[in-house]
C-alpha cells in the first residue's frame, strides 16, 4: 500500500521511518524494558532498534506484519543487550532483601519494588518463554499474534506460555514467603 518510489523507506510496502517510529516506538520501548533493558538504557535501545531497522529495511518482504518485523529487531537488540550485560545484570535481589528498605514508604517506590521483582522473575526465563510471556501477559496480544511475533507454531506458543506461567507463579510465591514481596 505504501509501495511507492517517493522514499527509500517504502520498498516492500514498509511505511516511512517516521511513520514506523510514531506507531511503534512505545511498543519497542515496552518490549525492550520487559526483555531486560534497563530504564536508563531504554532510549539508546530504541534508537538502536530503529537505526538497525532502517539499515535493514530492504529485508522486509511484506509477508509478515510490520509489527512482527519491528519486533524482530527489538528482540534481537534486547538479546544482545542481555549478553553484553551479563556482568552487570539488573539484579534487585539485594534491594528487595535490604532491611533498610521499608515497604509502604511511598507508593512509587513500592511499585518500583514490584517492578524490580518482575524483572528478576523474567530474568529467570529463557528467551523463548520470556518472549511469549511478555507478549501475551504484558502486551496482552492475542495468542495467534504472539505466535507470529515469536516465530513459532501456535501450540508451541501455548506450551511456552504454560511453562512460563508456572515459573512466574512459583518465583513470586517464593518472594512472598521470604518476605521480599509485597
Amino acid at each position: 500500500m505504501h509501495a511507492t518510489t517517493q522514499s527509500p523507506m517504502t520498498a516492500h510496502s514498509l511505511p516511512e521511518l517516521r511513520m514506523l517510529y510514531a506507531e511503534h516506538v512505545q511498543f519497542v520501548a515496552r518490549v525492550l524494558r520487559r526483555m531486560g533493558v534497563r530504564d536508563a538504557d531504554l532510549e539508546d535501545g530504541c534508537q538502536e532498534v530503529f537505526s538497525s531497522l532502517y539499515r535493514r529495511r530492504d529485508s522486509y518482504d511484506g509477508r509478515g506484519t510490520v509489527r512482527s518485523f519491528v519486533f524482530s529487531f527489538a528482540r534481537r537488540v534486547a538479546a544482545d543487550y542481555r549478553k553484553r550485560a551479563h556482568v552487570r545484570r539488573e539484579s534487585f535481589s539485594s534491594e528487595l532483601a535490604d532491611p533498610a528498605v521499608e515497604p509502604g514508604v511511598d507508593a512509587a517506590i513500592d511499585n518500583r519494588r514490584a517492578r524490580a521483582l518482575l524483572n528478576e522473575v523474567l530474568d529467570g526465563l529463557d528467551d523463548d518463554r520470556r518472549t511469549v510471556f511478555v507478549l501475551f501477559e504484558l502486551e496482552q496480544l492475542p495468542m495467534t499474534e504472539v505466535a507470529e511475533l515469536a516465530a513459532c507454531p501456535l501450540q508451541t506458543a501455548y506450551s511456552r506460555l504454560h511453562s512460563a506461567r508456572k515459573h512466574v507463579e512459583a518465583a513470586i510465591e517464593r518472594a512472598r514467603k521470604t518476605g521480599r514481596f509485597p
Partner: peptide
C-alpha cells in the same frame, strides 16, 4: 501490573 508504566 507494575509494568503498566513501562515505556518512554
Amino acid at each position: 501490573g507494575s509494568a503498566k508504566a513501562d515505556g518512554l
